[in-house]
């Protein structure tokens, strides 16, 4: 029985870590701009697709991975420069629609540039499962955990220990005040999109050996990432990670002990309940209305 439970947990952790990585991207952009970027899933897709197709065409893996991260960052910068910045002072809903438009555009571009087929990457360190007390785990899942961990530490360091990171946080707290002390809001916005696109690409690359990727892969990852970020409390990186893991584990346990047909529904019910009692997510800041 315990072995089964452990296997459900591993399954949930694998999915959960993937959702968490997707959720982190939402958190970063929200932090510096209060914008929910519905094209975040597409950054993940671009990272996965470009690395997979580059490797397939004979480019060595490390080079392919770096190129994929650059391509995705370029997409993030382009999105910010050409679509978000011109509309900076618009309503939140307006910007949401812009990012939805951007996600449709990127999917359309991806099916033209690449194709509609599924692509995969070889697992980073082989495909022999690791046995732990009767349950098994793929080495690639460990890669996903490790990368999520490294990313979280790196982000913490960036936001708390570097000048620029602190400036980015400052902007999120009070845009005007940040401007007054000389923080360039535009630069911060640009950096946050570049950073979350980079993060998306990293996520896309490490998960592709597990989930495969195609031009539409970003939709589901975006949706789960959004759920993870909201459940954890918007703008809180650690919250997004916890949120993602909760969603993943809830799905796995639900399919193990309740009903696999309703596992997604069960995950959403949990999110709804959390929100009923904690309207700002698990770790969100208490919102105060400005009158």
């Amino acid at each position: 029985m315990f072995a089964a439970f452990l296997q459900y947990l591993f399954s949930g952790l694998t999915s959960g870590a993937i959702y968490a990585l997707a959720g982190l991207g939402f958190a970063i952009i929200y932090n510096s701009s209060q914008v929910i970027n519905f094209a975040q899933g597409e950054f993940i897709m671009i990272g996965g697709m470009s690395s997979a197709t580059l490797v397939a065409s004979g480019v060595p893996m490390p080079l392919a991975i770096s190129l994929a991260m650059l391509i995705s960052m370029a997409a993030g910068i382009a999105l910010e420069k050409f679509a978000i910045e011109p509309a900076r002072n618009s309503d939140v809903v307006t910007i949401i629609i812009i990012t939805i438009g951007a996600s449709i555009f990127m999917r359309g571009a991806a099916q033209l540039i690449w194709d509609k087929e599924f692509h995969s990457l070889p697992a980073f360190s082989g495909e022999s499962p690791i046995a732990v007390m009767g349950a098994t785990l793929m080495p690639q899942s460990l890669w996903v955990f490790a990368v999520s961990g490294v990313v979280i530490v790196a982000l913490w360091w960036f936001f708390n220990r570097t000048m620029f990171g602190k400036a980015m946080l400052g902007t999120s707290h009070n845009r005007l005040a940040a401007q007054l002390v000389g923080v360039g809001v535009k630069k911060v916005l640009l950096a946050s999109f570049a950073l979350s696109a980079l993060l998306g690409a990293v996520g896309g690359i490490v998960v592709t050996p597990i989930t495969f990727t195609n031009y539409e892969a970003g939709i589901m990852l975006g949706l789960k990432g959004f759920s993870a970020a909201v459940l954890g409390g918007l703008g809180n990186g650690g919250g997004a990670i916890v949120g993602g893991l909760i969603v993943g584990i809830a799905e796995a346990l639900a399919s193990g002990y309740l009903s696999s047909a309703y596992k997604d529904a069960i995950a959403f019910v949990i999110i709804l309940f959390v929100l009923f009692f904690m309207p700002n997510g698990l770790f969100g800041k208490r919102g105060t209305d400005r009158v």
């Binding site: 459900y8 399954s11 993937i18 597990i210 399919s255 193990g256 009903s259 696999s260 047909a261």
Partner: peptide, 20 residues
């Protein structure tokens, strides 16, 4: 009799249930 969604990243939970 188990079910998964087309975009699920991992179905070991369903398979474990089958295995047992």
């Amino acid at each position: 009799d188990e079910v998964y969604s087309p975009k699920d990243p991992d179905v070991t939970a369903q398979l474990t249930k089958i295995k047992n």
